[in-house]
């Protein structure tokens, strides 16, 4: 019994070391190489426009194109949404294998202003999600992305949101596959997606 618990301690020690080691390795790897180091599976549970909680698990079996933003954003977000819309149009019959997901980093205001109205204006396939503050933060942390409210008297309602503008590709198993940095042309995203479907 005592020997076993010593063994357990040793094993747990090994686990801690391995975890610390993988964190160390993860931090030292350029972003593009994460997929070769370890699979990571971002999770979220966020309300859609109808108030239904949508969880990352329900999107298994398809690829997801996930991006964060806010509907009051006149420059960056329309650019990303337009690119996603173009990709979805050009995927043709393969479009059913890809679910684009827009996660609001300004959920309260976006919900008031109309989430569906915004996403469907770009493409009907885009699912808009706007959780509460805690679930939004949890989703962003899970994707390892940054967002922050910035007070700005030169913005509507006196604030704006800074956020990571990239698109994230999640595989059918829920694994984070890669990101497309902001400004990646729709044609490149399309070509990469098609090679995976």
């Amino acid at each position: 019994m005592i020997r076993l618990s010593v063994l357990q301690k040793v094993l747990w020690g090994a686990v801690v070391l391995a975890a610390a080691g993988s964190v160390f390795i993860y931090q030292r790897q350029p972003v593009q190489q994460i997929e070769t180091v370890e699979a990571f599976r971002p999770e979220f549970a966020l309300a859609d426009a109808d108030g239904q909680i949508r969880q990352s698990a329900e999107f298994r079996g398809r690829h997801s194109l996930v991006f964060f933003g806010f509907t009051n954003c006149p420059d960056v977000c329309p650019t990303t949404l337009s690119e996603v819309a173009q990709v979805m149009d050009e995927l043709g019959p393969d479009a059913a294998k890809v679910q684009p997901v827009f996660i609001s980093v300004d959920p309260e205001r976006d919900r008031q202003m109309g989430l569906n109205e915004f996403t469907t204006a770009f493409h009907p396939s885009i699912l808009g999600l706007a959780g509460d503050a805690a679930s939004t933060r949890a989703a962003a942390d899970s994707f390892k992305i940054f967002f922050e409210r910035e007070d700005d008297t030169a913005a509507p309602d006196g604030y704006s949101m800074s956020h990571s503008p990239a698109l994230y590709l999640i595989g059918p198993e829920g694994d984070w596959l890669r990101q497309y940095t902001y400004g990646t042309p729709a044609s490149e995203i399309l070509a990469d997606l098609k090679s995976r479907l």
Binding site: C73, D75, V76, F146, E150, D152, A154, A155, S160, S162, H163, S164, P165, A166, Y182
Partner: peptide, 17 residues
């Protein structure tokens, strides 16, 4: 109407006046 600039730095987009 105002002038803004989108700045993408360290993987984060912000939009200062």
């Amino acid at each position: 109407p105002m002038l803004h600039e989108t700045v993408v730095a360290d993987g984060v987009a912000s939009m200062p006046h």
